[in-house]
Nucleic acid binder design. Structure first.
Lengths: 211, 211
DNA sequence: TCATGTGAAGCAGTTCACAGCG
DNA sequence: CGCTGTGAACTGCTTCACATGA
């Protein structure tokens, strides 16, 4: 039955994202129904785990048949809050910020970049993907004008905390942080830190002992 | 005791990377010794977990005292294979590939980008951070010339599998994949897929239910 | 004495096996 | 009958509590 699911593990959450992507893929192929087993085989997952993960939030399937692709996809989109588009402001328009501003995953299916901000005067008024870079001082306006709910931090590590605080003050509710540093968080403004180096180090570990 | 540690969980591995970064930070501040408890408090970790994680690979500390920062850092660097620099080739010099080519984390402390490859003729011979972009057909040469051991995939999803196969054929031992797709892997060529959207979706989930 | 290293306990996340329902 | 949904068993990760040794 329905579960408000007070706490959901990050592992489950990542799998839900992956299920959603897989369903999109199936739907593009015109497939209407899928069983947990078929889904598992196609995308190297565990059938039981798919069912357990989904059951946490309701009964989405039809016994004896499987899941209706369109319906399940809708439910997952709802669950992950992707029904309404969430607007993003990117703080720090270096190479990484520029790349993310135009990144398909940040401009489709639930997310859209609506504002760019940088502290470097040389970058102000530059245009990236239809957006004009505005000065950090105007951050609050950029957030308001774009009706942004999330911020993306792509500034140097030393500037990350100040930028986070500014985003929090501007009314953003969540921040995706690419600076490899631990941020002191404000109540009500969730942070998710992504360290691009960790993937390399994980691979390096295995190479180190494979030799 | 020494442990060959046949299997190490990704969670542990990520924490080891984080410990290493924290130790670097401490060393920069001139701190010589640190206890697991102090480390935990400073960086929001668990002291017991730090000790358990480290104990898996040997006895690195001094009972009654703590850990010598320099020594522990060296051991972690060794464990993660960062003592010798691992050379990277980036396949796909779009905005993301360009950003990573110059990303500090990909060009310091164990990693270095030594080659760039793209299939778009318009990008060939372009220079990015001292490196010349070369055609995909020359991938094997680029890997050999640069003595590269890892590849970084920043091509469109549709091209990811072919690029992975080419990297594997060129003799690379590990691939960091930024395309949101499941790759069919070649024996001996490990893959780690990083999906930049997942962080957004995780945050979106919490925003969806906070409202 | 004090903080590490570690068996034992506790908890979470995964897999199993099958009841329940279309 | 077939596949979902789910208690129960299991596996693995985290935390506890303390023996060990500098």
């Amino acid at each position: 039955m329905m579960g408000p699911a007070e706490e959901v593990s990050p592992l489950t959450l990542n799998r839900l994202s992956f299920y959603l992507r897989s369903l999109r893929h199936l739907q593009e192929q015109g497939i209407k129904r899928v069983s947990s087993q078929e889904l598992a085989q196609r995308y190297h997952l565990s059938a039981t785990q798919i069912r357990k993960d989904l059951a946490q939030f309701g009964e989405f399937g039809i016994r004896g048949v499987g899941y209706e692709v369109r319906h399940l996809r809708e439910r997952l989109r709802h669950l992950l809050g992707l029904e309404r588009t969430q607007n993003l402001v990117i703080v720090g328009v270096g190479r990484l910020g520029t790349a993310l501003a135009a990144y398909p995953g940040f401009n489709s299916d639930g997310f859209r970049v609506v504002g760019l901000v940088d502290s470097d005067p040389a970058k102000i008024d530059r245009r990236i993907g239809g957006l004009r870079v505005r000065p950090t001082a105007e951050l609050a306006d950029v957030v308001r004008d774009g009706n942004a709910i999330m911020g993306v931090l792509t500034v140097p590590t030393a500037a990350a905390q100040a930028s986070y605080d500014a985003l929090a003050a501007a009314g953003v509710r969540a921040v995706l942080n690419f600076a490899p540093t631990q941020l002191r968080t404000t109540r009500g403004v969730r942070v998710k830190t992504v360290d691009l180096r960790i993937g390399l180090e994980e691979l390096g570990f295995f190479l180190a002992r494979a030799t």
